[in-house]
Simulated assay, not measured.
Amino acid sequence: MIKRLSFFCCILFFTLSCNSKSEKKTTQTNNSKIAESGDSRQSNLPDESISAICLWPKVGLRDKPGMEDAKYITTIYFGETVEFLNEKENTDDGKEYLKIRLSDGSEGWVYGNLFALDGELAIIEKETELYKRPDIMTFEGVKLKPMDMVVIFDDEEHKEWHQITSIKKERNGWIQGNIDAIQDEVDIKLGILYWRAMEESSEKKSVLLENILANPNFKKSKLIENVTKALYENSDGAEAFYIEELDSFENLSSNKLGIKTGLANVRKDPNSNGDVLFQVQKGDICYILAQGESLEKINDVTDRWYKINFNGKEGWVFGYYTTKRRN
């Protein structure tokens, strides 16, 4: 009897032990599947964020899609690159809005048509033909000019073509073959500031272009000559003149300056020790040829020098004595 009971206990212990191992194995298998499932869900997330480039001079960032009841957060400017958060929403008027994040971490919504997704900024270096579609039969005479700023998109389907869009989407189309374009980081930053300036009023444009010329980071840029031309060689409007009774200059374009002091020395070099070549007097109007690289303090006054042409004679005059006087 005792032997039978012992045999029965051994069988029962063996059975329970097998069940326990089976349950443990099943549990481990189930846990493994959960982990695999979790890894699978995580891999579905995008590996890289999508960039969005602002194509308009100024765009408002708001706390929700649309304009109605949306709170203004901040302004985004042309050329600014932001992060697209992979969320889109259509408003009642049919406009598509994108959720984005700025470089300072601010998040909000913008009108999608004012941005270019997943492209790269470039500056056209040489005159380039623009096609309506990736087909040589679709050229309609449109050409991109040097200094035009565009966004270039990758298109693996059309290996020999590049799709582009420009500021405010004024130019859209395709470029055939290799693009003569500049994508150096410093040059791109200069180009962004240049086009921001060109979208402003005449007076503010001149100030912004002068700031670019004065920025030491841009001195070696191959584009700096284009800024000088835009600032000093862009005016063929009405003739400038001086009204003595009002002590005022009229029609004074950005490539000219007026003398505001009784007499001003025009020197050989842009400094107070330069030889005096000739003098100009109050009311004289001079063409600007260039501006000094840095500010100089003379008699407690800080300003920059301007190279001028007056009646065929050239030299440097201190800005404080002219209409270019710094405020």
Rank of each mutant, 00 (worst) to 15 (best):
K189N: 13
E210A: 12
N234A: 12
V317A: 02
R41S: 14
K88Y: 05
V280Y: 04
Y72F: 13
E296R: 05
I259W: 06
W195I: 02
N113P: 00
G79D: 05
L231T: 04
A70P: 03
D135Q: 07
H158Y: 15
I179E: 00
K324M: 15
N30E: 14
E68A: 13
R41T: 09
Q281S: 15
I298V: 15
L85C: 10
T27S: 11
Y232S: 06
K24D: 15
T165Q: 10
D148Y: 00
E314G: 02
K260V: 15
D247Q: 14
K220C: 07
K220G: 04
F278P: 06
R326H: 11
I124H: 01
K25F: 09
T228Q: 13
K282C: 05
Q163C: 11
Y72D: 00
T261V: 15
E314C: 05
M147F: 05
L295H: 08
I259L: 12
L231S: 10
I182S: 01
T27G: 01
S40E: 13
L12T: 04
Q281G: 13
Q28V: 00
G108V: 03
D269Q: 09
N215V: 02
W316H: 03
S272R: 12
V266F: 03
K25I: 10
L289I: 10
W56I: 03
L193K: 10
D269I: 08
T323M: 05
K143P: 00
K126E: 12
G119C: 06
G108W: 04
G283I: 12
G262L: 11
N273V: 03
